[in-house]
Computed example of a mutant assay.
Amino acid sequence: MLFKRKRPPLLGIDISSAAVKLLELSKQGARLRVESFAVEPLPADAVVDKNIASVEAVGKVIKSVVKKSGTRLKHAAVAVAGSAVITKVITMPASLSERELEDQIALEADQYIPYPLEEINLDFEVLGPNAKNPELNDVLLAASRRENVDNRVAALELAGLKAAVVDVEVYALENAFALLKRQLPPLPADRAVAVADVGAMMTTFNVLHQGRIIYTREQGFGGKQLTEEIQRRYGLSYEEAGLAKKQGGLPDSYTSEVLEPFKHAMVQQIGRSLQFFLSSNSHREVGALVLAGGCASIGGMDKLVEQKLGLPTSVANPFVEMTLAPRVNAQALRLEAPAMMIACGLAMRSFD
């Protein structure tokens, strides 16, 4: 154990439906430092419903984002979507060694996973003693169809990177959530925090209690709808509409006729997810809400959500207490921060 090799430092690479986000972190004492980051858009339909449709196209963008970031790291952590993963908590004798546990799970996995074992990637984590029987351990099983994992590994390899960790997006988000605690209002111990991650194609609504995700809901709503409305209203190509959305230059009517209706639709979607949670978890109240994803950067979005839903609302920024390497553009990082939660959680796997 004295000479056990340390895991090499990892890049966090988030492959979303619309972009590839790269983040490199280092640790100095207890403090994290951003060494490099970069974001590059993906071609349309390269990733569909969070599944990689074109490994070559995604690999090309990863290669570009690595070059843009200037990183020298060659190992990465990526994640598959929570909807592509089956998870189940089972119990196993606490007396089993890790090897015995691995063998036992391999023998029994087909009881819990509805796919042939040769078609899946399977992993497990011991959560700790079972609440009702201390002689048993609770064990989390996670399984995903093999192509979900293999396509991400292959895309990284095309960019000259090695996949050291394949995580699940919700667990990466949970990992990064620890960085937001000081940005939240003081809450009673029984209150939960909701994180609404509104990306390009999908809104993922997570509820966390004491730092653990207890509820997840996905719905097909995101920034693509705003881009398409700009495209339709002003006769632009999809690429031109996307640039105009970020850089400005649209007619004065844009704010009142396009942006404001989208913002209210976004509040409605978040409110609906919140009601779904409350109706299925009547014993648990939500005390605060965090906006993440690209759409969280829309000006005044947090204030509108707070006003309409009556919850203290903030915009996610996992980098507030981190230092930055000289080559990191602080303003660019701040603009991308709400969309970097998953990349941040993945990059933090370097320190496990």
Rank of each mutant, 00 (worst) to 15 (best):
Q247N: 07
R72M: 11
G82F: 11
K303M: 13
F177P: 07
R152C: 15
Y254K: 01
T91K: 13
Y115K: 04
A76N: 12
V58A: 09
F37Y: 09
L291V: 04
V165Q: 07
P116T: 11
V48E: 05
K132L: 11
P41L: 06
V139L: 09
S273Q: 13
V286H: 04
D138S: 05
R146W: 06
A142N: 10
F276Q: 08
D123M: 12
Q210A: 12
L96W: 11
N175S: 15
L291Y: 02
A332W: 01
E125P: 06
L179A: 01
A194C: 03
S16F: 05
N329F: 02
P114H: 07
Y115T: 13
S237M: 02
K74G: 13
Q111W: 12
D103L: 13
E157A: 10
H283I: 04
A241Q: 06
K21W: 06
R327S: 07
V58T: 09
I86K: 10
L259Y: 08
I298V: 13
S64C: 11
A76P: 08
A343M: 04
L32P: 00
R191N: 02
V305L: 05
M301P: 00
L23P: 02
L107Y: 08
I62K: 06
E229Q: 05
M201W: 04
E108D: 15
E40D: 02
A154K: 14
R99M: 14
T71Q: 03
P129D: 09
K132T: 09
V170P: 04
G59P: 14
V193G: 00
K181R: 12
N51A: 14
R334Y: 00
L42I: 05
S26R: 14
K21P: 07
D49K: 13
V47L: 12
P185I: 10
S16A: 14
K4Y: 10
A109R: 06
M1Q: 11
P93M: 10
S253E: 08
R5W: 10
K162P: 13
A155C: 14
M301C: 08
A244Q: 02
F205T: 08
K224L: 04
R5G: 14
V58N: 05
N148T: 12
I230G: 00
T216G: 05
G29M: 07
A296I: 03
H209Q: 08
K132D: 10
Q104G: 02
E260D: 13
Y112G: 12
V153C: 15
F37L: 01
A316Q: 06
A244I: 01
S69R: 03
A131G: 05
L122S: 08
A244W: 02
G223R: 00
E108F: 14
L158K: 11
A163V: 14
S350H: 02
L158R: 15
A241V: 00
E56P: 11
V195H: 01
R5H: 11
R191I: 00
A244E: 02
N148C: 15
V61E: 06
D352M: 10
M201L: 07
L42H: 09
N206K: 06
E24R: 15
T255V: 14
K308H: 03
G223L: 09
I15W: 05
R232I: 00
A106N: 12
V85R: 14
P93T: 10
F276A: 05
N137Q: 10
S237N: 01
A53P: 12
D167R: 03
P134Q: 09
V47T: 13
R191A: 04
I13R: 04
A79C: 11
E135N: 07
G128N: 10
S350C: 03
I270D: 04
L259A: 07
E100K: 10
L304Q: 05
A330W: 06
